[in-house]
C-alpha cells in the first residue's frame, strides 16, 4: 500500500465497485445491516453458522460486484497480518496435542480457536467491504449523520474522505523528489530524520491549507451545521434487502443458540 503509486483517477478512499444490483441500497440500511452481521458473527462459536455467514458475505460481495482480484488481495493482506497470532494459538492453548512442530505440541482446542477467529475476521471484513465500500464514501458519511452520529464527527469523516487522497498524492510527489535524490526509506538515522521532516512539513502545509479552506468555507456561510436534505428515502429495495438480511442473520443466530443448547 505504501509504495504503490496512486493510480490516476482512482481515489485512495473511494467506492470499490459500482454497486451492482444493490447500487440503490440506502446507506443507513447498509450500516445497520453490517453492524448486525458483525455483532452476530463475532459471537458465534460453531463452524456451521460461521461458514454460512462467510458464504453470505461472499454472496453479497458478488451482488455488489466487488472486483474479485482486488478484494482477494486485500483480504489476503489482512490474513497475513493476523497470521502470526493465529499460527501461535495451537501451540499456546492447552489441550490434547494433535501434532508436533519441532517438539512443540499443537493442541486441537488451539487449532479450533484459530480457525474460528480466522473465519470471523474474514466474514466480517468481507461483508463490510461488500456493503460499505461499494458505496460512495460521501454518501456513507451522510448516512452516518442521519443515523445520529455527531455532526462534528461526520464533518471529520467528510474532510478525511476529501483530503486523504489529495494529501497522499502530495506525499507521493515529495517522496518521488526524495527518491530522485537517492533517498531510501531504510531504518537509518538519516532516513528517520528525513521522514520526520517530511511528516512535519506535511503537517505544516496541512495547517496552512486548512486556514485557506476555513476562509473559503466562512465565505460560503459555514457555521458547523451539516445539511442533510430529504432526498434519501427508504425504497422498496431497502425493505426487501433489510427483511432478507434480517432473516439470514436471525436464522444463523437461532442455529448458534440451538447448537449451544444442544451441548
Amino acid at each position: 500500500m505504501g509504495g504503490a503509486a496512486p493510480a490516476a483517477g482512482a481515489p485512495l478512499v473511494g467506492a470499490n465497485s459500482s454497486g451492482g444490483s444493490l447500487k440503490a441500497l440506502d446507506g443507513r440500511v447498509r450500516i445497520l445491516a453490517t453492524a448486525a452481521f458483525a455483532l452476530a458473527t463475532v459471537s458465534f462459536s460453531h463452524f456451521g453458522p460461521l461458514l454460512i455467514a462467510l458464504g453470505g458475505a461472499m454472496l453479497v460481495a458478488r451482488l455488489v460486484e466487488l472486483p474479485i482480484l482486488k478484494t482477494l488481495r486485500r483480504i489476503i493482506a489482512m490474513d497475513m497480518f493476523i497470521a502470526f497470532m493465529i499460527l501461535m494459538l495451537p501451540f499456546t492453548t492447552l489441550g490434547e496435542p494433535l501434532f508436533f512442530v519441532f517438539g512443540f505440541p499443537a493442541s486441537r482446542q488451539g487449532l479450533v480457536e484459530a480457525a474460528l477467529i480466522g473465519l470471523k475476521a474474514n466474514a466480517i471484513v468481507l461483508m463490510a467491504m461488500a456493503l460499505l465500500s461499494s458505496f460512495e464514501p460521501v454518501e456513507l458519511a451522510r448516512a452516518m449523520g442521519r443515523l445520529g452520529v455527531p455532526e462534528r464527527l461526520v464533518h471529520l469523516v467528510l474532510f478525511n474522505i476529501r483530503y486523504i487522497d489529495l494529501l497522499y498524492r502530495e506525499l507521493h510527489r515529495l517522496r518521488t523528489a526524495m527518491r530522485a535524490r537517492a533517498f531510501r526509506a531504510n531504518a537509518s538515522w538519516h532516513a528517520c530524520v528525513s521522514m520526520g521532516y517530511l511528516i512535519g512539513m506535511m503537517l505544516i502545509r496541512a495547517l496552512e491549507r486548512s486556514e485557506r479552506i476555513l476562509q473559503a468555507m466562512k465565505c460560503r456561510g459555514f457555521t458547523g451545521r451539516l445539511y442533510l436534505d430529504g432526498e434519501e428515502r427508504i425504497q422498496r429495495l431497502d425493505l426487501v434487502f433489510a427483511a432478507a438480511f434480517a432473516a439470514f442473520v436471525g436464522a444463523l443466530t437461532l442455529w448458534e443458540i440451538l447448537s449451544v443448547a444442544a451441548l
Partner: peptide, 17 residues
C-alpha cells in the same frame, strides 16, 4: 473543523508510509 480534518487526513497518509 477544517484544521482537524486536514491534519487527521495527514496523519492517515503518514500511517501509509
Amino acid at each position: 473543523i477544517p484544521a482537524a480534518g486536514v491534519l487527521s487526513a495527514t496523519f492517515f497518509c503518514a500511517s501509509l508510509v
